[in-house]
Design a protein around this nucleic acid. Structure first.
Lengths: 121, 121
DNA sequence: AACTGTTACGCGTACCGTAATGATC
DNA sequence: GATCATTACGGTACGCGTAACAGTT
């Protein structure tokens, strides 16, 4: 039996923002069935219901709202991993500073960390 | 091409603590080749070298040390996801408090969050 | 020889799209 | 009929263990 997966977490966040699985799937270039299946599996793994399924779409349950706060933090920290890599790659972090210069927009968005806050939290 | 995975992150942390891939694999009930492969892939995805490979084992590079800080945070927040679920499941969090009583050691370790700090950070 | 880490091969399985189903408006 | 979510089915791709390999002590 497979364990918790990062994709699941992204699907849940997108579904919560979209308000229904169909739009979430479209936004992620996936099929609706994928979202439905993965969300159901995460619910099973956590042992609780994250979404109320209605005929107009889905809505977070109170438990879902509690959980998704931490889910977003996981994803935000995950982005920080990439940034930590970029920064040390450009000589911004670490013990030895090489004279590497590199103009990359990704690096710019990593300097403050605010972009993730806006994106996930 | 597959994206970043939680397993990879756990493998990296374990390898860093173990000091070589063989012991890390043993600790995770896996084969050494699995650790080697997954670490290499994460390095490729991040575009930098996380470990210096020596004949006595492995050691984090400066970049590796920078990255692993955030990797541990991801894993710590991931544990918090499970705890958020448990707490709302036991009526500790959420808008409606039911009189659910449940003696579970997992719930106890979730109350402070310190166990994750000790485990990962 | 014992200990590292790396890599090709092959198998099992888990993921995902397709399509069919049910429910509501 | 147009939405919505769910689920069985089947092909594909990915992860992992086995085993062979190279280098160091």
């Amino acid at each position: 039996m497979p364990a918790m997966d990062l994709k699941q977490l992204r699907y849940v966040v997108t579904a919560a923002e979209a308000g229904n699985f169909a739009r979430a799937a479209e936004a992620l270039w996936l099929n609706t069935s994928t979202i439905s299946r993965r969300v159901a599996r995460l619910e099973e793994e956590l042992g609780l219901t994250l979404f109320e399924r209605g005929h107009a779409g889905v809505r977070l349950t109170p438990s879902g709202r509690a959980v998704i706060v931490y889910v977003k933090r996981v994803l935000a920290e995950l982005e920080m991993v990439k940034c930590a890599g970029l920064q040390s790659g450009t000589g911004r972090v670490g013990e030895i500073r090489l004279g590497v210069r590199m103009e990359n927009p990704l690096g710019a968005s990593c300097q403050s960390g605010e972009s993730f806050i806006r994106k996930f939290l």
